[in-house]
């Protein structure tokens, strides 16, 4: 039997709202007020998010972000720093008691990322799970993901790159040499790819169109891979209110952003 999930497409929003809404959905599902939820969204203005355990100034050139109009937000999930611009972002919220929940983090990634892998395949891009938390195609990363568990729920969110602005990305993020060496790749730029790079036909497609096409493919991918019955919906008024409160009171606060 299919698993009933709410499907949200919440458009393009500032970083603090995006992170606020993900946490609001987590609370709402945890309290049994909403069904398990799959959400797709984008970022406007572009933003850099950092993992819960990362040092702000070790990972991000904050002056460069300010100069380029790029927001900064700390996530409630671990993982690395991400430049969010030309991409599709998703979040999935599932109670730990749900049949799709896995106790082990890696098992959980493997299961949920199956949806993205199937979605990319729908677009004609073969890809594979690259533990711990990535998806790669042709040896290059196309999707990064992060997960947490709070209030008896799993929240996983992640990105699928539609295009890569390598020069801008590396002008905003500080990438230590140790990391590049550790991955045994001489050119750090060669580690990342995107839907646009993988699909020559997408080269001339406007961003909004490619975003919609990719979201549609991912919806199908998640539905097929996880056997979901996706019910298109909107965030509740309460979820939006909590998201706005979290955006202003938590995610926009200097104390949270510079937590580490």
């Amino acid at each position: 039997m299919s698993h009933m999930f709410r499907l949200l497409e919440t458009g393009f929003n500032p970083a603090v709202f995006n992170m606020g809404l993900d946490e609001a959905l987590l609370r709402s599902v945890a309290q049994g007020e909403s069904h398990p939820t799959l959400r797709f969204y984008g970022w406007k203005p572009p933003a850099v998010s950092i993992g819960y355990f990362q040092g702000l100034h070790e990972e991000i050139d904050t002056d460069a972000c300010a100069a380029q109009g790029v927001d900064i937000v700390r996530r409630i999930t671990g993982g690395g720093a991400v430049f969010h611009h030309y991409e599709v972002t998703y979040s999935i919220v599932v109670p730990l008691a749900h049949p799709l929940a896995r106790e082990n983090i890696l098992d959980s990634y493997r299961l949920f990322l199956g949806g993205i892998i199937k979605g990319l395949a729908t677009l004609g891009i073969p890809s594979e799970f690259s533990p711990i938390n990535d998806i790669s195609t042709g040896g290059k990363k196309i999707s990064g993901n992060a997960q947490t568990r709070k209030l008896g729920c799993i929240l996983q969110h992640g990105t699928i790159l539609l295009d890569v602005e390598v020069d801008q990305m590396f002008s905003l993020l500080k990438v230590p040499l140790e990391k590049a060496r550790g991955k045994l790749i001489a050119d750090i730029k060669s580690r990342v790819t995107s839907v646009k790079h993988c699909l020559p036909s997408a080269g001339s497609e406007p961003f909004e169109s490619l975003f919609s096409t990719t979201v549609g493919a991912l919806e199908k991918g998640f539905a097929k891979s996880l056997d979901l019955d996706l019910q298109r919906s909107e965030p509740t008024l309460k979820e939006l209110e909590i998201a706005a409160e979290l955006a202003a009171g938590k995610f926009a606060s200097a104390a949270w952003t510079a937590l580490r």
Binding site: F53, Q54, G55, I76, G79, N133, A146, T148, R149, K150
Partner: peptide, 15 residues
């Protein structure tokens, strides 16, 4: 001690 990086530790507050 402060340990930072792009690792995962759940629940984060316990870390």
């Amino acid at each position: 001690i402060s340990i930072r990086g792009d690792f995962f530790a759940i629940p984060e507050e316990e870390f």
